[in-house]
């Protein structure tokens, strides 16, 4: 908590812009994510979700605007060490086993010895792959590989967890297990920024940002968004906000 009594911000972006040639992937995004929040980023393909993640982990630089991650510039050694990142791609070594992959990423974050072994064991159990820990990743199903990727992202118990579409290609039962895990990590103080296409599961986040064309078109708790849009479901709410934004653009 900050001195003023409000929660410290895990991510604070102001008027963030990123252009790739003439295309603007982020068009003045302003975002505040308090620590300990499970924040859902919802939007169609090309809305700018992955661009925001890449900027937040220091893999890409914003064209203009500012962003602070855990109170620092993104990409510093301290921020990288305190952040877990699950990319859209599985990003695993297919010829290593589940445990070897998790162990490798644990080492990158400074874990070693008994601490590393217990962290690997715990996280592999958490993603329900204890019985496949010694299986080579290339022999696993898509869902199991996603679980392995998630285990790699959280093995070092990060303060900030950036999950870029973690449930793509994952069956409903496993998706539910993932969200249970996310909720428990958030309850333990971890900040999560999760992007998703699944509007139904997005409702489990503490707060949601609806992203379209590189800017937030609505932001708030799921209940607030449903109330403001007078929609029954998150999907209807998103469509409603998107329609309003289009109308505003036409009016301009």
């Amino acid at each position: 908590m900050s001195a003023g009594g409000t929660a410290a911000l895990a991510i604070e972006a102001n008027d963030l812009r990123k252009s790739f040639g003439k295309r603007e992937a982020l068009a003045g995004l302003t975002l505040r994510i308090p620590e300990g929040t499970m924040y859902g980023l919802v939007g169609p393909n090309g809305a700018g979700k992955t661009t925001l993640f890449r900027i937040a982990v220091g893999l890409s630089r914003a064209t203009s605007g500012t962003i602070r991650v855990l109170g620092q510039e993104p990409g510093t050694l301290a921020v990288r060490g305190a952040t877990g990142y699950m990319t859209q791609a599985e990003a695993l070594y297919g010829d290593l086993t589940v445990a070897e992959n998790v162990r490798f990423f644990g080492r990158l974050y400074g874990l070693s010895g008994a601490r590393l072994s217990s962290a690997v064991e715990e996280v592999v159990r958490l993603v329900d792959l204890a019985d496949r820990a010694d299986s080579v990743v290339d022999t696993l199903s898509g869902g199991m590989r996603r679980r392995t990727a998630l285990a790699c992202a959280v093995v070092h118990r990060p303060r900030l967890l950036l999950l870029d579409e973690p449930t793509v290609g994952v069956d409903p039962e496993l998706r539910s297990q993932f969200w249970d895990a996310f909720a428990s990590w958030a309850a333990g103080g971890t900040t999560l920024l999760v992007s998703t296409h699944h509007l139904d599961e997005a409702g489990r986040c503490h707060r949601l940002g609806l992203l379209r064309d590189g800017a937030l078109i609505a932001e708030g708790t799921p209940a607030e968004l449903l109330s403001r849009s007078r929609a029954a479901t998150m999907e209807e709410a998103f469509l409603s906000f998107a329609a309003r934004r289009r109308a505003e653009e036409v009016a301009r």
Binding site: R54, V57, G58, L59, L77, R80, G81, T83, Y85, T87, Q88, A89, E90, A91, L92, Y93, G94, F105, L108, Y109, G110, C152
Partner: peptide
């Protein structure tokens, strides 16, 4: 291509 380079670069390495 598999994204592991991106993961490595996002780590403290």
């Amino acid at each position: 291509m598999t994204g592991t380079a991106e993961r490595l670069l996002a780590s403290p390495l």
